[in-house]
């Protein structure tokens, strides 16, 4: 569970777009996993089961959040593109954005969160949780080819959103 903590948290965070909410949902996910440990089917991987639990909680939260509109820390609040999260002191190691500029980080977050939900979850699971397309298909409950199509669309959307960083990417690659 400790090994999956950060990827799952990131998956939840990219879904709910709020670190505090993501933390609550992560705790709920752990509780569900512990309480349902006996019902866990050994036939499936723990990773698949854990992400399925987290995803279901994210969906529940999205349904409840229809009538609640809270500003997201990563949501731009003014014209210069600064988000609410930028105004909050970053006190966790995940906020280390020195490896790449703040601009790229914000652009990446905005681009990922702007993806449709089905494409975003597939992209996050494949790119950051390093799950295979088959496992992603098990989590989201869709055929593997559909997952690949969603992934392809997500990459194309990101490519178009990050076109200004292509030269920078070439220098890195």
């Amino acid at each position: 569970m400790r090994r999956h903590r950060t990827p799952i948290f990131h998956f939840i965070l990219r879904s709910v777009k709020n670190p505090a909410t993501a933390d609550e949902i992560l705790q709920d996910a752990w509780l569900r996993m512990i309480q349902g440990a006996r019902e866990f089917q050994r036939a499936s991987r723990f990773t698949t089961w854990a992400y399925t639990v987290a995803r279901n909680l994210c969906i529940d939260h999205a349904r409840k959040a229809v009538h609640r509109r809270h500003p997201s820390l990563d949501q731009s609040r003014d014209d210069d593109g600064a988000t609410l999260g930028d105004s909050v002191a970053a006190n966790d190691p995940g906020a280390d954005r020195n490896a790449i500029g703040h601009q790229l980080q914000r652009s990446l977050v905005v681009a990922i969160e702007s993806l449709p939900g089905d494409q975003r979850e597939v992209f996050v699971l494949r790119e950051y949780s390093h799950m295979s397309f088959k496992e992603i298909a098990d989590v989201v409950g869709a055929p593997e080819n559909t997952v690949k199509s969603r992934m392809r669309y997500a990459l194309e959307r990101l490519q178009s959103s990050l076109v200004e960083y292509e030269d920078y990417a070439r220098t890195l690659g």
Partner: peptide, 27 residues
């Protein structure tokens, strides 16, 4: 596709909050 992946890989993943570890220990 390769360049997009390179850019996406530069996104630093935020670590889970510290108190989540305490919750896990309690759980």
């Amino acid at each position: 596709l390769g360049r997009t992946r390179v850019l996406a890989s530069k996104l630093s993943l935020p670590d889970a909050p510290v108190h989540s570890a305490a919750v896990m220990a309690a759980l």
